[in-house]
Computed example of a mutant assay.
Amino acid sequence: MQTGRPASLQLIADGRNTNTAAIALSYGQQIASAYGADLLSQNGGSSPVEIESRAWFNPNLITRWFIVPGLIAVLVLINSILSGALSIAREREEGTFDQLLVAPYTPGEILLGKGTASVITGIIQAVFVVLVAMFWFRIPFQGSIWLLSAALLLFIVTAAAIGLCISSFAQSLQQAIVGTFLLLVPMVMLSGFATPISSMPEIFQSLTLLNPMRYGLELIQRIFLEGASFLDLWPLFAAIMAVTVVAVLAAVFSFHHKIS
Rank of each mutant, 00 (worst) to 15 (best):
P107A: 07
W56A: 15
I110H: 06
T116M: 11
F204A: 12
I88W: 08
F204M: 11
L9F: 12
M213D: 03
N43T: 15
I139F: 07
A159Y: 09
G45A: 09
S144A: 02
S41M: 12
E91G: 06
L210K: 06
W65A: 09
A161E: 07
R92I: 01
L210M: 05
R92A: 07
Y215D: 00
A160I: 01
I223M: 00
F230N: 08
V246Y: 12
I31F: 09
S254R: 10
L111M: 09
E226H: 14
L100T: 09
I120F: 10
P186Q: 06
F155Y: 06
I51W: 05
G143R: 04
T180N: 10
V188I: 09
T195H: 03
A228H: 02
L11H: 04
S144Y: 03
P69C: 05
G4K: 04
E91K: 11
I72Q: 04
A13E: 03
Q2I: 14
F135E: 14
G70H: 06
L75Y: 11
F97L: 07
L210N: 07
E109F: 07
V127D: 10
L112W: 10
R90H: 09
N43S: 15
G36W: 00
R92C: 08
S47Y: 06
S144K: 05
F181Y: 02
H257P: 14
D98F: 12
P235V: 01
P104W: 04
A37C: 11
H257I: 14
G227K: 02
I78C: 09
G192A: 00
V243W: 08
F135L: 12
V185T: 07
T96F: 01
D232Q: 10
R214C: 08
W65L: 05
L11N: 07
S199H: 05
F155V: 06
I203S: 14
I123H: 09
R90P: 08
A55Y: 15
A85F: 03
R16S: 13
G179R: 03
F181H: 03
S191M: 01
W136F: 11
G44Y: 01
Q175D: 11
G115H: 07
S206I: 15
A37Y: 13
N43M: 15
G143M: 05
A89C: 01
L9S: 13
L112D: 05
L61Y: 12
S199P: 09
N211V: 00
F135P: 12
G15M: 07
V102I: 08
S149Y: 13
T180L: 08
A117I: 13
S33G: 15
L231D: 15
V74A: 05
S118Q: 05
N211Q: 02
M213T: 12
L207M: 10
A133H: 01
L217R: 04
L61E: 13
S172N: 05
V252L: 06
F141H: 06
A250W: 07
S33D: 14
T20Q: 13
H256P: 11
T121I: 13
Y215A: 00
W146R: 07
P235K: 00
L164W: 03
G122I: 02
Q174T: 14
V188R: 03
T208I: 02
A251M: 04
I139H: 03
Y27G: 15
A250F: 02
